Amino acid sequence: MDSIQVIILALIQGLTEFLPISSSAHLILPAQLLGWEDQGLSFDVAVNTGSLLAVVLYFRHELLTMARAWMVSLVKRRLCDESKLAWWIILATLPAVFFGFVAKDFIATHLRSAGVIAVTTVVFGLLLWWADKMSRHELSEYQSGWKKALMIGFAQAMALIPGTSRSGATMTAALMLGLTREAAARFSFLMSVPVSLGAAMLVGKDLVESGQAIDYQAMSLGVLVSFVAAYACIHYFLKIISRMGMMPFVLYRLALGALLCGFVFL
């Protein structure tokens, strides 16, 4: 890939990974509009790593506090708000891990199509609108509890279907369960750490086993651009979400779904 292609794809990945608008829906658009070939496994590793580094750096204080509290809960059997949240995030990760292993081949074979992505972009966009409209907007992430965390985890597993959006599905579920917009976003972002780390390890393993040639210059540029875009996205999204609500993202998803339907069905 040339540098322009690397920058565009890394920007798309970094900006859409944490917004409720589906990164997979956006990553097929350059191929449709510009005729680009698949970017390859090594580039996927690079941009996913950049997004992971961004969320870890942004929430470094929360993650360190949660990690320490979680260790104390293991050794001394003493729970606090931070250790409970850590346990809930671990619990919420399990459905995606299970269904990822069970349904990985089926999804790759039958669901990775532009038609599926177009439909899920619209359907889950409407669900996001309904959840934001009906939510009580009362609870913080520390008030979610293990049952709500597990339900959000099952929503994250639904995001294995391309076009659903991991962030969109988890925020939708969190809003349905009464979390505030900010709490839903923070919980979703924190949940992304173990999932993204596991995905990066699996894709990295596949890359090593594939023997694919690696363009280290393109990978380094992809990591950097994805990191900067994802960090900025997290920062500004958390600042404006309470005032803006989810409607702009819902309208965007509907427009994107219509565009994708035009490519697929016309």
Rank of each mutant, 00 (worst) to 15 (best):
S83D: 10
A255W: 02
S24Q: 05
L33C: 06
H26Y: 00
A69T: 00
I7V: 06
L177M: 13
V228R: 04
Y252R: 05
I161G: 08
W130P: 00
M191A: 12
P20M: 05
L19A: 04
G153F: 11
V208D: 11
C233G: 04
N48S: 09
L266M: 11
M219Y: 02
L175D: 14
R166P: 07
S23P: 01
Y236A: 10
V208T: 13
R166Q: 11
S22D: 02
E138Q: 14
Q32P: 07
L34W: 14
T109F: 10
P95D: 13
A232D: 06
V223P: 01
G145F: 12
G178T: 11
E37M: 06
W129M: 12
P20H: 00
S3F: 12
V208S: 14
L139G: 09
F237Q: 09
S113E: 15
V102H: 08
G211M: 01
A149C: 09
L79C: 07
G14M: 02
S23M: 12
D2N: 08
L221K: 02
Y231E: 07
V55M: 15
Q13F: 10
E62A: 14
M246E: 01
A258L: 14
R60S: 15
M219N: 05
A159V: 10
A54T: 07
W70Q: 06
I234K: 09
I8A: 00
Q32M: 15
Q13S: 00
V119E: 11
E182P: 09
A157Y: 04
G257L: 09
S210V: 11
V116W: 02
A149H: 06
I161D: 12
A185M: 08
R112P: 09
L33N: 02
I107L: 14
H110K: 15
L15P: 01
G257Y: 07
R243N: 15
E82Y: 04
S135P: 03
L260H: 02
S144Q: 08
L259D: 03
L251Y: 04
E82M: 09
M158Q: 11
V223H: 01
L128N: 03
L33T: 03
H61P: 08
E141Q: 13
G245L: 14
G198T: 05
A114W: 10
I107H: 08
R243H: 12
V72R: 14
L177T: 10
L251N: 00
V56T: 09
G40E: 04
I152K: 12
L27E: 08
F124K: 04
Y236S: 12
L34K: 07
E17R: 03
S196K: 02
K239E: 13
V123Y: 03
S192I: 11
I21C: 04
L259Q: 03
M247R: 09
V250F: 03
R77P: 01
I4C: 03
T109G: 05
W36R: 00
P95V: 13
A114L: 14
A213H: 05
L179S: 11
A86K: 00
L94N: 10
A69S: 10
L41N: 11
F263M: 03
M134G: 02
A159H: 05
G245Q: 11
C261T: 05
A86V: 06
L111Y: 02
G257S: 07
R243G: 15
T65W: 07
R68N: 09
I214S: 01
A159T: 09
S42C: 02
D44I: 03
S83C: 06
W70E: 05
M158T: 15
M134T: 07
L64Y: 06
D44N: 06
L160I: 15
Q212S: 08
L52P: 08
